[in-house]
Structures are given as C-alpha cells and as structure tokens.
Design a protein around this nucleic acid. Sequence first.
DNA 1: TTGAAAGCGGTACCAC
DNA 2: GTGGTACCGCTTTCAA
Lengths: 338, 338
Amino acid sequence: MFNKEITIKDVAKHANVSVATVSRVMNGRDRVSDATRKKILKIIDELNFVPNTMAASMVNKKTKMLSVVVPEIQNPFYTAVIGGMVEVAKKEGFFTLVVATNGDEAEEDEFFDSFLGKNVDGMILIGTHKDAEFYRNIRKPTILVDRYINDCGHDGVLIDNFRGAYEATRHFVEYGHERIAIIDGEHDFNDGKDRYWGYHQAMHEGGLTPDPNYHKQGNWLEEDGYRFTMELMRSEQPPTAIFAANNVICTGAIKAIRDLNLRIGEDISLIGFDDNELAQFVQPRVTVVSRPTREMGLQAAEMLIQKIKGEPSEQTKLKKVILDVELMKYGSVKRLNK
Amino acid sequence: MFNKEITIKDVAKHANVSVATVSRVMNGRDRVSDATRKKILKIIDELNFVPNTMAASMVNKKTKMLSVVVPEIQNPFYTAVIGGMVEVAKKEGFFTLVVATNGDEAEEDEFFDSFLGKNVDGMILIGTHKDAEFYRNIRKPTILVDRYINDCGHDGVLIDNFRGAYEATRHFVEYGHERIAIIDGEHDFNDGKDRYWGYHQAMHEGGLTPDPNYHKQGNWLEEDGYRFTMELMRSEQPPTAIFAANNVICTGAIKAIRDLNLRIGEDISLIGFDDNELAQFVQPRVTVVSRPTREMGLQAAEMLIQKIKGEPSEQTKLKKVILDVELMKYGSVKRLNK
DNA sequence: TTGAAAGCGGTACCAC
DNA sequence: GTGGTACCGCTTTCAA
C-alpha cells in the first residue's frame, strides 16, 4: 500500500525511450510511431503506472476541477442548482466539487485558502460574504448564482425575486386579503431584499399599507417560520395570509399551522417562495413561487465554462442573467371576496 | 485579473535573500533572524504574494484535503454523516470536500480518476462499487462508512442494521401484528441485506413465516415506497404493518398512506429505518429505527485522520466499528393484541 | 542564520 | 518520430 509510486521515468526506462515520448503517448497529441506507442502502453499497463496529475497541473495550470460553493447542502434549492451545474460540467470534462460554507464567512474564507480553493479552474458561488471586496479578490473565473453583490466583478445568474414576491402578494390581494404578513430575514443580499420590496409594492398597488407588525424578520430559518407564524396567529388580530419568503420558512410555517390545529387555505392562507417537500405534502398543497433551480445551475455552468475556455482578452462587460419565476397556484389561498 | 502570479522568487529577489529563506519564514519551522523575517514578511505583504499550494504539495505529498464520497447529498442521512466528518476534519486542519456519485459506479470511478480523487490525503467512502477489488485498489487512507465490503482492505464504521430491523419487526410482533410487510431494495450491500435478515429472524422468532408477497423489493427509492405501499394496501389481504427499510422508502410510504386516505397507526402500522422529515411531521409521528448518523461521521473522521498521521508501519489489523441503533417508538404502531 | 542546488513528476520546446 | 532538457514553484538537505 505504501510502496513508492511509479513515475514516468520508470516507464521510460523500462521501455527504453525518453520521458518525452512517454508523455506523448499519454497525452496522445504529438505523433508517435505505432510500435513504440504499443510498447509504452504495454509497459504502462504492466507497471500499473498512474500519472501524477499534480505534476501535470503544475505545468499547464489546469486541474479540470470546478467548485460550487453554497451555504448549505440540506436545502433542496442548492442541491438542484448543484445538479444542473454538475450535468454541464461533466459533459465538458470537468469534475465538480461541492463545498458547503454553512453561511459562515470564515468557512468560506477557509475554502478559498485551501488547496482546492486555490486550484480549481473556476467556480460557481452562492456567496456568504457581503462585501464586494471579497468577490473582487477572486482572481479566477467565477459566476455568482442567486445572490449578487454589486461591483463584485463577476457575472451572475439570478432570478426575479422582486417579481416573485410581487406576484405572490398580488395573488393574496386579488383574493381579497388585506392583513397580509411576510416572514423573511435580514436583507443582507439582493434576493431577500427584493422579495420584501416586491411584497411592499404589491401591497401598495392593492391600496394596502404594509403593517410593520405583519413584517417578521428572522434569519431565514425554519425555526423563524415556525416561531413567527405562531406569534402572528396568536396575536390580537392575526393575518389572513402569510407570505413565507423562502422554502424553509415555509416549512416552519406549515408545521406551526399544523400545531395550531389550523387549516391551510381555510383558517390561514399561505404562499411560499420556492418549493419544498412539506409544501407539496400537505393538503391542500401550498401555493409557491417556483423558480427554475436546476436551470440556474445549467446556465451558470455554461457561462463559467465558456469563460474558462475563452481567451483572457475576451473580457467583455459583466453579464447578469435573470431567470423568470412562476406562481404555482395550488389552493392554499382562500378567496375572501365574493 | 490575469497578471502573472507572484512567486517565491520574486519575493526573494525583492528582499535580497534566497528562496530558501523565504520558504523558511513561510513555514516557520526553521529559524530565521528576526530582522530578515520581518523584512520578508513585509515584502510578502507588499507584493501580495500567495504561495502556490500545488508546488508545495508536489514536494511534501500532502494536500490537507479529505474527501467524503457519498451516493447522494439529498438524503439527510448522508448530510449528517458529512456534518460529523467535517467537524472533526476541520479541527485537525483538514478541508473536506464532498463528492456525490449518484450511486453510479462510473461516476465514482470518475472521481477517483480526477485531479482530486488522486490528491486528497484520505477519504471517507460510502461506496457504490460492489466489488472488493475496487476498494483494494484504493491506495490511500480510507474508511468505509455504512456499507462494508468484505476483503476491501479498509476499516469501517457501521451500524447494526440487523438488530435495527430485528427490533422494529419484533415490536410489530409484540403488538400482535402477523401480516408484516417489508419494503426494501436490492441486497447489494451488507446494510440492506442485514436489514432484511433482521426482519426475517424476528418474524421466525415470533412464530411467523415471512410471506414473499409481503416482501417488496425495489431500488431503495421513495417511489418504491410509494408504489409498493399502494400495491400492498390494495391487495386482497393487506398487511397490518409495514417496515420501510430506509428513510426515503418511508417517505414514499407515508405519502401513499396519505393518498389512500388511511390513518397511520390506525389503519396501517408503520416503522421506518432512519429518521426523516415527513416521519416527524405526520401525526402520529412515525416510529423509526434511529441511528447515530452524525456520530458515524465523527468516528470515521477520527479513524481516518489517525491513519493519515500514523506511521505507515503501524499497519494494524483491519477494524470495524459497529455503532448501535435505537428503536424510537412514536406511536405509528397499533396494538392489536389484548 | 543563510544560500546553492537537487529534486517533486510531469510538459513542451528545440534539436536531430 | 524521438530524445534532451529547461522549466512549473516550492521544500529541503548540505555547506558555508
């Protein structure tokens, strides 16, 4: 198990050729006579020679490795993005490694400082850092997904968060709701922030004034969804509708509603942002703002690989791709008017 | 963004010292005079020099990277194992990268052939390959988790699958069930196989003969759980109890039961292997065989790191650590007797 | 304490 | 076609 590794030199020696020639048959680009090629191939097989990828990478500065950095891998949204990305990367001969940062800036830093962070050919980043500075310091092909920081210096693949929240809220309004609550989190990133303002605008357009008491800001966690739904429903004047601004908040809300023995779509209307398992499970199924998760990964990976392959001189302007969202009406919103 | 990288040579030149000295202050082991150290540190900072980790790794043959290879990352079981592993690894200064193989041997191969597969210092493997040969060919510190292949040449951290299934089935028997079905999948690996035989033995000990019609073998997927539960419950003589042999099968079973408008713990008793979100959500909560998922990752990582640090000569006998499981009774099993 | 130089294991250019 | 060899950027003796 720990016998010293066989190197290209050993192969060369056994085959009575130079290392250059061995290298040639390995990479297959330069032409080598059929005889020597066969001979070398045979030796390689006999010696069970496995080339040292690191040595090669030192020379050509490529690892054929991509990374996708996400806050967490429990969340189906991220796994879907990852799935899309991996599919494209594989097709292009890149291996993708997944890195979870747990939404911790320090952990994110750690990755960038690690062996890998330094040696991937490019990456897709759903970042945790909030400062553009951090992103500008990334000196390799990078695509930001979902969250975008202005002046970060990288392309992005995003969705129309504003419109998603707007449509959801408008749906409530059209169905006659007036006491519409929103549970979200810190507005650290564009995504969360835009959702709030989408809600805000739809409220105003519906002639409603967002009530601060109906705006519950937690930390984008399931427990926030649970706790705030409890709070809201037990208040003097509970809302008739709740907009859960991400998938796990929605999960929490569903659990709270269950524990309060309320009926979704009857005692309380609910819309979630992004689909989730529980939302699909409960009856009626929860209306959600659906986004093209896998598609985001696909798009991002394509842009990334193009960037990697492209000439350095091809420095075009920054590009932001905005994908559309769709309100999937499943019946968790009760019609109050007529 | 693409200006040529600064190397240790540049630093040496600017500081008027040799590269050896720069290397020394970077690694901090050899002693360097305080004056030169300060000088070099200053230059490093000014030049914004970042050492090339790959070059260093070429020399010392270490990357401080670990990998954890799992079939998929959607499954909470795997993410829990990963979580445990990452915790330990981080404490020891290793960075962990997650690789999902989608249960596809080819994809698993791909990883091992990739840059990274070759250059991690060690790995934790929840393998997809079924042949011991494959595992024996892995020439670096490796710990198998959950699934174990005999003669693979590596240590393992496992759980007592047999006992888990045995306890579950016995619980059914004790509560007076006789028509007890089991939904599992191929017996490709020890884990699944042991679960079946645990069920088998408990049946026999309870004086019951396992009925082939009640043994549904799919592919360990949620859809199998769904489909077979439907099938079972619509058959001439439906079982009174179902043992779902993994967490996603259990999820499928729960959905089927819901769609059949049956009540868990009333019309049909259910036990799952390994916890899952839906099992916790439904009421009554589903009784499950719980296993120390995170603990498995912790254990495995500790063993792995010790192996990496240890002397090559310390080749002790192979070690298999078996962790215990526990039947968590939550009320999804109806008492039929007395 | 510091420097020179020999690798680590490949790749690729330049001769022949 | 094939061989010689100068790197890639760092670490680590060995001497001074």
